[in-house]
């Protein structure tokens, strides 16, 4: 008897529609977010994450409506990330029914924003999203840095130090995405996941690179992740959440079945 490892499907939402980028280009339309959230809930998803990739400020309200609709009929935790820059952005998402918000670039530009957000709303709803990329050479000890702008802009900040700092500032959870693996379907960056998970006291969600169900189990067993996040393998019904859980259970991982 213990805490179950979580499976979190992620929906990338653009103007109210679910899309999934492969390395952030070649976006395909995978449908209506409310419909998909309902399906994931039925299949046993432990949480659902929405990543709002709507570019224009004018259309940012669409995600609020999506969250409101989903939260009215799906009773599992919901996280919203993408474009969260102010305390008011957070309040709007929480009021719409989100349980947690993911803060990414805004934390890099102004780390105190995380502290203010945690003080105002509580650490339990502040997820700091970290996009990391390996910067060490093959013959060097592994080192990862934080990148912004969808993995295009290096910041020079060490990923492990950054994760520790964000927890000190009040992050209740870390969503860790490997920019080297995102969209590749080659599996999580396991050394990165393990390094971050062992460096911080809060739960770590592994993300980026899932191509099959064993990748999810690897993230927990080898990467020591507390939760695993994937998008495309679930969107196109390649695998159901239920199959993912059965695979994880078969590999000895405690899951909610």
């Amino acid at each position: 008897m213990s805490l179950a490892k979580r499976i979190i499907p992620c929906l990338d939402v653009d103007n109210g529609r679910v899309v999934k980028g492969v390395k952030f280009v070649d976006i395909r339309d995978a449908g209506d977010p409310v419909e998909i959230a309902r399906r994931y809930d039925r299949e046993g998803a432990d949480e659902i994450t929405f990543l709002d990739i709507t570019a224009t400020h004018d259309n940012r309200d669409t995600i609020v409506h999506v969250v409101e609709q989903v939260a009215s009929e799906v009773f599992i935790p919901l996280t919203v990330g993408g474009g969260i820059r102010t305390l008011d952005d957070i309040r709007r998402m929480l009021n719409a029914g989100a349980d947690k918000v993911g803060i990414n670039s805004a934390a890099v530009f102004n780390p105190d924003f995380v502290r203010e957000a945690a003080e105002r709303f509580g650490s339990q709803c502040i997820v700091v999203a970290i996009d990391a990329k390996k910067v060490s050479l093959a013959n060097e000890p592994s080192r990862w840095e934080i990148f912004t702008h969808g993995g295009r802009k290096p910041t020079g900040i060490d990923a492990i130090e950054w994760a520790r700092k964000m927890v000190d500032y009040g992050a209740g959870e870390i969503l860790l995405t490997s920019m080297d693996r995102d969209g590749t379907r080659e599996g999580f960056d396991l050394p990165l996941t393990r390094a971050i998970s062992e460096a911080v006291t809060v739960p770590v969600i592994a993300s980026g690179g899932v191509g099959n169900l064993d990748h999810l189990a690897d993230g927990v067993i080898e990467g020591k992740a507390d939760a695993v996040l994937a998008a495309s393998i679930f969107h196109f019904a390649e695998y159901s959440i239920e199959q993912a859980k059965q695979r994880m259970a078969a590999r000895g991982i405690e899951v909610r079945l």
Binding site: L3, D46, V202
Partner: peptide, 13 residues
């Protein structure tokens, strides 16, 4: 021997 994370977050019995 794995570190148990705080907050206690997720689905438990």
């Amino acid at each position: 021997g794995n570190l148990l994370k705080i907050p206690h977050m997720g689905w438990n019995q």
